[in-house]
Structures are given as structure tokens and as C-alpha cells.
Design a protein around this nucleic acid. Sequence first.
DNA 1: ACCGCCGGGTGCC
DNA 2: ACCGCCGGGTGCC
Length: 876
Amino acid sequence: MQKGLYKYILLIQYSSQQTSSNVSYFADDPVTETLSQAIRGTGEELDREPDTGVLFGSLRGSVVGLRYYTGVVNKGEMVSLVRQPQNPYDRNAVMVANVYGSQVGHIKRELAVLLANIMDNNLARVEGVVPFGVTNQFTMSVVLSFWGREENRDAVVRQITSRSFKLQSGPTGTHTHTHTLTQLKNAFDNLFENLMDDKIGEREAVEAVCTPLLPHQKQALSWMCACENNAALPHFWEVKGELFYNTLTHSSVRERPRRVRGGILADDMGLGKTLTTIALILSNFHHGKPLCEPVSEKSSPEPKASTTARKNPEGKCVSHSSLSGKSLVSPVEAASSQSTDDPAARATLIICPLSVLSNWLDQLDQHVRADVKLNVYLYYGSERNRDTHFLSSQHMVLTTYNVLSADYSVSGGASPLHTVRWLRVVLDEGHIIRNPNTQQSKAVLKLNTQRRWILTGTPIQNNLRDLWMLVAFLRLKPFDVREWWNRVIQRPVTQGDKTGLQNLQALVKCVTLRRTKTSRVCGRPLVSLPERSVRIEEVELTQKEREEYELARTEGRTTISRYVAEGTVLRNYADVLAILVRLRQFCCHPGLLGKTTTHTGVVAVTPAELRERLIMKLRLVLGTGSDEECAVCLDSVRLPVITHCAHVYCRPCIAEVIRSEQEQARCPLCRGQIKASELVEFPLEEEEEEESNLLENWRSSSKVEALMSSLLRLRSEDDSIRSLVVSQFTRFLTILEIPLREEGFKFVRLDGTMSQKRRAQVIQEFQSDAPGSPLIMLLSLKAGGVGINLSAASRVFLMDPAWNPAAEDQCVDRCHRLGQKRDVVITKFIVKGSVEENMVKIQRQKQDLVEKAFGTKNPSERKTSRVDEIRALMEL
DNA sequence: ACCGCCGGGTGCC
DNA sequence: ACCGCCGGGTGCC
């Protein structure tokens, strides 16, 4: 009710302004925003399961009062229905709005009673399509279709027939071919692949960029400039007489729709997204002209590029491009950007995770000529300058997602960064904003900017919803409003509609550039990386180790086979994981077992005891660095919490489950009852005293010996080769420090517990080629997240297999990337006849399986595969 | 005629 | 609205 009221106020506000003036549909004016928000609000409420709903049927109704409103609709156009519970003439009022949010009219009174009932009780989503368009100035037909959960079908049908309306079964629209789920999965997985064709020519960066761009980077620059300057109609739009017609929503507008000024640069890590973006910023200022030029043009050495710089009439340096003509801004493009550029918008805002902030500064240093006066301001730290004039006058402002969202919530939306009119906003690692419910995402959406870019190496993990946020940020009209996204893209695609998928593919294609390390242009690889080879080194346990291992294994097998027999594997999942972790630890070094107890079971006497045990389990599941996934978002667990039934989720994910299901909230894995007050999180603490313990009672292990002999051999053969030693267990890294020191190796260590500052130091130290710099980096598998560069290393020792092979690949990618000069050799240590061998087998199977199902968050499907996995691991 | 029929006034929710 | 609906005028054929 409260929310309804809010919506209504927004609408009133909107209509009063709306009738007095023509709305410019494509401007980001607050009026349009307001109504979009109102509609978006409805969308979100009904959005819980936009893809699982079934069609109950449809019926013909009429829209009345057309003459009072200005919203126009065409034949076949979709309209949105918005409840107006506070309408003074009828509390059942249902407003009809077109794709751009302009009100068209109301649903006729008798029908509105019915709709109000269905909508207010959330029995179905109601969607409207106008079959004939406007035929007179008073009323028009509308076809309403009802979508909902199967269990509500009867109620909806009853409501409709009891009010003597006739529900036609089946869709009234055209039937399209459908895909099987597998076809769909494949298509979706390939959504971001093969986007490469004819994406335009190449373009040189301006002189101010001193690093020569590689061919694929020139291509990206050319594409990005075209995206920012191009005035061509966006996809799905056609000229129809005087008007512009959208082929998906069947709507048309008088004003020329603008193409999204920006897009998604989704190149693989290491292909130089940062450099390309710097080149864009310097090369494509207002009207496609360079941002700034070297100060000392005369005294500077010969230009590095083959072609010479020219002067345009204003004396500004023009891009010394290939001059083939194809890459230069055409007069038409220039004219159009001239007419729409806001001259006050001059600065580019870069938003990135803290971990890559220093990378931006480094790269600016490295790629921008020293005599170019580029004003770059780092908007970070408590002393940051919040003056908006100051910020607006910069060439670039760098900040982090955290600073942005913190400012945003403190200022109630009027933060300095939200006040500046930006020329361009760049989201680095843009997939961070894939969840629209986070503060970060909300803050990002509210930025005022002419051009928008998303840089990401992983555009979407496994869910269409993730993509919506990116589309919304880009303001890819009209899909930035959830209802249209859901109706035109999300629902059709997840229900296997072929044209829906084609539309999605076209949509992604027109805003995305993605190349992988293996992409080829004109038959040649993008970048030539050195070879990379993987060898598995089998490790034999000693007699003593084998005995200890077998003891633990037998014990574990007994417990797990009992769970399997009882069918309670998932209920005791934390225990099962604990057993597996213990076995994996045995394979590495017995000292890893630490204070884990053999006691299992969640039955505890006191709350404090229970809490202690839950925390211990949580530590086992996560503290080891193994990549556990959250059963809600199916992604790596972030902000982990453990339920009383001992299952681990992201806090926001499980909080959302509890919020939406209230008292009936159940654990998604075991269906046990869960409460918000009973979620236990990882306490931030301790555990250092044990290190001395390790030292005093030092004993080696087969795996430690295997590593050491490799390292020693390597050093004797070539002492310039640097190595990454990777483990999921940070304690194992600690153990390895002892023999490394003993043998006189200089090493550094990088793990998840270190501050950003310390990490940057360590990376710099390792990457440095100064004499006496470390030969070895001890690295925890998940440390540092994406984007760090460890190209100084060319050997990788993976000490223990990961659940998720992608995590290993990512880790290897940190050295097998641009800048790597040597062939990369990866050694995987696997203990013979152990759980590790089985893990490798499962890794292989996983890769074959199309695991990345999306939309289908079918827990039972996943459950069986998990149980099977565990049985395979334990050879049960 | 406590009807039917005609034609003018009228019009979202 | 080239409708439906309302309510006043009217009334054999």
C-alpha cells in the first residue's frame, strides 16, 4: 500500500508536467526518469520470477480517456499497466503507459476492477499490447495477457469469468519456434563470443599516447570512437516516414533516437583495455578532437608513428591516423555530436575496484607522454577535494565503487560525483555492478554523463539478469526499464523463444566488443603469447603419510557413506566438506589440519558452543581459500554467513531469501527453517600463535619435498626464472616459507589477508627486475582477484587442485598474459591414489558438462550433481 | 404510455 | 463517439 502511494505521487507529478509540454523521450531529463522509476517500481515487484511465469490466457479490453493524455501508441505496440490505488475517481484505476512512460489513458472501469484485484493480490502479471493502435481520439483496444505461477491459474480464471469476461487461451501474438534448454544454454554461453566481425577499421591514438597500439587495440579505439560519435540509428530502429520506429516494441517517436554513446568493452584480461581507454580519452574529446596535446611540440623528438601530425584550422593536433579515411570522423558524425555535446561536460570519471586503482595510475604514467599536461585527480581518501567545479575542470577523475556509493548514500544522491556533468563515465571491472540491488549499482546509475563505458573481462557469469544492469547503465532504451527488458528479452529468452534470443544477441552485439586471447584477426592471432604447458607431477606419499591418510580416509568414508545411505548428504554438507578438506590437507602437509576437530554434527548444548562450531565449519568451508559457491547466486560466496543448518551463503543473497519469505524462510539447500538473527558470520581474528608451533615441530611432507626439488633444480639451471607457488591453503604457504628460507630462496607472499597497499608493494617487488628481487611468490589461489599482473613469473606450481578449474586458469593467467616473454610451464602436484586424483577427474568432467545453466536455479538438479561429485571423490 | 421509439446532449479514471 | 448511455419529448397508420 505504502509503495503504491509512492508510485502514485510520482505519477501525478509526472502527468502535471507532461500535459503542459512535449516530452523528449531520449533526454535524461528528470521527468522521464521519474515516470520510469514509477514503472520500474512495478517491474521490480513483479520481477521476482519474470521467467518462470506461464501464460494463463488473454482478453480484449479497452483503453479510455485517450484525449486527456499525450502518450501515443502504434499498432502492435506494447503498453504497461500501472495501478493507481489513490485515484480519486476510482480506487481500482489502472493507468496505461507507452514504452517511453507517457500516459496513454486508463483501462475501462469494469475491467479495471478485475485487473486491480489480480494485480493487487499478485495473482498474475498483466501485460498489454495495442492491436490496432490509435483509431480515434477517445478509446482503443488493448489485448491483455496474464502471466503467473501455475498455482494461481485457477484463481485468475475464476476472477475473470466471474466478472463475465472471456479469457482466450494461448497467446494472441504469433507463435515462434522454441529452443531446447541445451540449445539455449549453448547460445547463451556464446553470447559474448564471435562478436568480432566487421567491427570497423583501425585508428591510431593521438600523439599524446606514447605507447604504440597493437592492431586489435587500434580496432577497439576505432570502434569506441565510432560508438561515441556515431549518429546512425541504433539497432531495432527504422525510419518510417516522419517518425522513427522501434521494431521490437513497435513504438515510434518523432525525435531521432540516440544511439547509446558508449558500450561494453569485454576483451579478455591482458588485451589492454586500460590502454585503449586511455587512448580513447585522449583521442576523442568534444567533436572527435583530441583532449590535449604535448606542450613542447617543437622540441619534442620525432613523432613515434609513421605518419606525421597535421594541424586543423584551429591549430589543434588532429589524430595522425592511417588516413585511409575509414577511421576519421565523418562530417555527419562530427556535426551530430556537435549538436548534442554538452560543452560543460569535459571530464572523464573512472570508477574501479580499489585493487586496480594503482594500475590506472601506473598505466597513465607509462602510456601518456611526459610533456602532456593531463589533469588527473584521484578522488579517494578522507581529504579528497569535493568541490564540483574543481572536479569538473579535470581531464580525468579516478575513484572506487566504494567511495562512489559511500558518498552517494551519505549525501542522499547529491554527492559531488553526482553533481558534476561528466563527459564520460568508465566502469572498470564493470561486472561488479551486475546486481542492481546494491548501493554501488544504484549510485552508478544515477551519474550524469554523456558517454558510458563498461570494461570487463567477464561480461556475464550465468544469468540474464546480470546483463540487465549493464544495459540499464548504458541506457539502452527502452530496456533500461525492467518491464520492457523482461517482456522483450528476459522472458522470451528463458522460455526458449527463438526471436527473443535473436533479439538478445543483436542487442549484445551492437554494444559489445569482445576479443579473447585466442581470437584472430585476418587469420593472425591478436597477440602472440608464449606457449603454455601443463604437466602433472604425481607425488607418492611416504609409508607414514599413507598410513595417516588412509586412517582419515576410512573414517571419512564411513561417515559419508552413512549420509549417502540416509540421503542426508546435503543436510550434513558442512561435515562432508570438512572431511574432504581434511583429506586434501593431508595430501599437502599434516600441519595444515591445525585445530580442526574430528567432531562432527551440529547438535550443540549451548548457543555459544553452537556458534563456535558454526564458525569452525565456516572456516573449513571458506578459510582454506577453496572456492565455495553460494546456492542462491551460484557465484563465489561473498560476505559469507553460515546458517544454523550449517550451509554457507552470501549474506545479501540469503538475507533476500529471508526477507521475501519472511517467517516461512527455508534454507535453499536443505529446506530447514532459517532466521536472519541466526546467521553467523566469520569473526575477524587471530590465529598467529600457531606459526611458532609449526616451526618447532617441523616436519616435511612429500609434496613439500616435490616442490623443493623442482625449485632447486630450476635455480641451478636458470636462476633468472621466477615462479608462482600457489595453494588454496594459506597455512600451507606459511609452512612452505620454512624450507624456502632454509634453502636461501628470496620470496614474497600474496594472500587475501593483506591490505591493498601491501599487495601493491609485494607485486611491485616481485615484478621488479632489480638485482636481489624475489624469485618466488607464494600466492593464495584467490588472492588479489582479477587484474593483477605477475608476468615476471614464467613457472607456476599449483600445489593442490581446486574445485573450480576456472580459478586455476585465472591464476595462471596472471603470468600468462601480455608482457610475458617466456614460455609458461605449469606444474600441478597431485598425490597419487588420493582424493586429489579424483578431483582432477571431476574437473575434467565439469569442463565437458555445460554447467553454466542460467535461469534454471533448479536446486534439485544441482543437488544430485553435488552428491554425485562427493560420491565420486570418496569412491563410494 | 407504469411502455417503445425518436433524436439531442454527452463522454476516462 | 460513424459508438453507448442518459433522459426528455412524444405517441395509430
